[in-house]
Amino acid sequence: MSISVAMTVNGKAVSGKVEARTLLVQFLREHLGMTGTHVGCDTSQCGACVVDVDGKSVKSCTILAVQAEGSKVITIEGLAESPDKLHPMQEAFRENHALQCGFCTPGMVMSAIDMVKRHNYQLDEATVRRELEGNLCRCTGYHNIVKAILAAAPAMKSAGV
């Protein structure tokens, strides 16, 4: 069944024809060619596909594209102001070596930003670790990811993002 779908992705209006079964992540990757959002599992566990839909962090592998009709979607590609001005969370990941192979990174960064905002920019290590339940990383052992998120929280606050 072919359906028209329209939404805003990273501030840009986009539309396309999809099948009802097309997942949001497939729409982003295959229809829009935005391959920054990754797929690392088929059971909604790994979190490599996390994006922001209408201000909420969601796993784009567990939502149909048609369910995001009319939504505002933000992906990893939409965070940096410019190639030289990264989002404070991206900057903190770089500064703290919170990524190695880079595959889980987009979802990890998207979840981390959501986490900081939900906790009103105030986090401690135990909270960060617990809140990362939906994101798997096989490279970093999480140590530096936790460090990066703790460092990014005040940076996001002072940057007003």
Binding site: S44, G47, K56, S57, V58, K59, T62, E133, G134
Partner: peptide
């Protein structure tokens, strides 16, 4: 329940 993303949906 689940993780933050699950709780949002």
């Amino acid at each position: 329940i689940g993780d933050p993303q699950v709780r949002n949906r």
